[in-house]
Amino acid sequence: MIDILMATYNGESYVENQILSLIGQTHKEWKLLIHDDGSTDATVQIIKKYQKLDFRIHLLEDNIKCGGAANNFLHLLKHSSAEYIIFCDQDDIWMESKLNVLFSKIKNTTEPVAVYCNAYSYDGVKITANKVSLIKRDKLENSLFLNSGVQGCSLMFNKLLLDKLIDYPAYVYMHDHYITIGAISFGKLLYIEESLMLYRQHNNNVTGNVPVSILDRLKTFIKRGNPIIDQKHYDANKSFFDKFYEQFNQRQVSVFKAYIAFPNSNFFQKIFSILKNDFRIGNSTIILIIKTLLKKTIR
């Protein structure tokens, strides 16, 4: 059984198509658990319509307002009981094989694990890119400086990982970032190259539109206002380290401490730290060094 966790808020324009794409999944053993964050449009009415049509759809009505998508997803995690869990955004569309492909990758794993896939970028009319994610990650050294987690809507993980993480740190910035760092710290983070959903780009995206063209990615990279480290992700990484310090091995402790010390280091100390700790942006040390040369450290 897979728990699909959907956080909704004023999604009347999109949520019906997403629910229909879930009903059409080739893997049928799932439960959709939805928590709405105080929608003022027809989102809840649409959900209740489909709740009557499919017994696998459940709306959690507890009158709790979470105040944002990240807290809404974390709230839903507290109500999940299945052996496998996947996040679901209200505004995407899943390919019919998505659940089956992700589940097949981790179903026989006996350790904490997460798996993520790629996605097509979709503007509501046409596909604008074949892959949203271009940078792979699988360890702290190539993840901490990415200022993100893998896309939450692409991420499936097992209960063994959730059990490790269900007691949250003092500060979590985004749900997907939290699960990503948890997977690479306490288990495995696997990747499937295939694009298994339409990732909708629109003005109301919670995390903003993702740059998908090479030109847009280059513009984002060279923009001087973008720091090496985003303050909110830095605070979340530090909070994660403080929470789980005693569970890390010696190498992980060393890597986290070097990352935490990075903003207060001088230029030569930063370069030394990058090389010593094998810090990378994905698989590239050079890109991180270039960013260190060109950009502010943190903001």
Rank of each mutant, 00 (worst) to 15 (best):
K105P: 10
S143M: 09
L161H: 02
G149C: 08
S143L: 12
M156Q: 04
H175Q: 13
D176F: 01
S104D: 15
N142L: 06
N147Q: 13
K136T: 06
E96Q: 14
Q201M: 13
N158H: 11
S148E: 14
L190W: 06
I135A: 08
K139C: 14
K159F: 05
M174S: 11
L155H: 00
D176I: 01
H202V: 03
D91Y: 07
D167P: 06
Q90L: 10
E193H: 05
V206L: 12
H177Y: 10
Y120S: 03
Y191D: 04
L134E: 15
N142F: 06
N118P: 07
W94F: 13
Y178E: 11
K136L: 06
K136G: 02
L140V: 08
L144Q: 12
I86N: 00
L161D: 01
K105E: 15
Q201A: 09
D163I: 07
K139V: 09
T109F: 12
I127D: 13
A129H: 12
M156H: 02
M197H: 11
K126R: 08
A119Q: 12
Q201N: 13
I85A: 00
H202G: 02
L162V: 07
L134M: 14
V150N: 02
I127F: 04
I179W: 02
S121V: 04
D89A: 10
T109V: 13
L165R: 05
Y199P: 00
I135T: 14
S121M: 07
N205M: 08
D92K: 00
V113E: 00
Y120D: 07
D176T: 02
P169M: 07
E193K: 02
Y199E: 12
I135F: 11
S185I: 06
V172R: 00
H202L: 07
S195A: 13
Y168I: 10
W94L: 12
D89C: 05
M156E: 02
E194L: 00
T110N: 14
D91W: 06
K107H: 14
R200H: 15
V101R: 06
I135W: 11
V125M: 08
V172Q: 03
G187T: 05
D92I: 12
S104W: 08
I181R: 03
I106H: 06
T109D: 05
C117A: 05
S195H: 03
L146S: 13
T109K: 14
S185Q: 05
P169S: 08
F186T: 03
D92L: 04
V132W: 04
I192G: 03
D167M: 05
I179H: 01
T110Q: 14
Y120A: 03
L189G: 01
L99C: 10
M174P: 00
Y191K: 06
V150W: 05
I93V: 14
W94C: 01
D89Q: 10
L165C: 07
L140S: 03
M197A: 04
Y199Q: 09
I192T: 08
V125W: 04
P112D: 00
A114M: 10
Y171K: 13
